[in-house]
Amino acid sequence: MLLEVKNLDKFYGSFQALKGINLSVKAGEVICVIGPSGSGKSSLIRSINQLEPYQGGEIYLHGDLIHPNREVDKLRQEIGMVFQSFNLFPHLTVLDNLMLAPTQVKRVSREAALAKSLALLKRVGIESQKDKYPHSLSGGQQQRVAIARALAMEPKVMLFDEPTSALDPEMISEVLNVMKDLARSGMTMVVVTHEMGFAKEVADRVLFMVDGEVVEDSMPESFFSNPKTERAKLFLSQMLQR
């Protein structure tokens, strides 16, 4: 197992956002986490990356127990994260957004970081914007830069927290295409998303969460054509009406 989550409990005050979540991710697997808002999807992947404290349970990467607050920086180098709101660094050019972490954290030489960054920008189809500042890019372009920025650290796993939810409809597909391409290249991915088409097409497994629990964990074909729970049926019918 590349990534394992065991009995994860998370509380906001007295409210329990995650109730004993278990999740195992094999190398190369693409897992889509779906569910109604407030079901704990984002809390789950933010906890994996230690951006949120959790009160119970363990997370393992390559079988090593991750200690909260210890060696967190090292862990995060191996886990890439893409946010709903992009969170590009507005004071740095696109290229510098990509080069900051490799040069500062991994001490990669500038030449190597530059070559790698240019290749990544080319991969996400945005190399012509390399010297621009993020604010002059469209939302879709910004999110593609954010994906490239995370990839620049050569992570073992990529976490996506609703990567297309803040985008205008016409820009969603350009980001999804980059993600599909990434999935096909063998990247291990955990994706919180409302894009059912994407989940159907690229997910190896679909996790359906409600009220802080994983209600279904199944193959996409069986989940979308034949959901086991009433809650999932209701959710899917509501998503189809959109």
Binding site: N49, L51, V72, D73, K74, R76, Q77, I79, G80, M81, F83, S85, N87, L88, F89, L100, A101, Q104, V105, K106, A146, R149, A150, M153
Partner: peptide, 20 residues
């Protein structure tokens, strides 16, 4: 979100402060 993005890339607290 700026701090979260920087930390999620592996930058330490000090480097996040300095560079971001």
């Amino acid at each position: 979100g700026q701090t979260e993005a920087a930390r999620s890339l592996g930058l330490s607290k000090a480097k996040t402060m300095r560079w971001v």
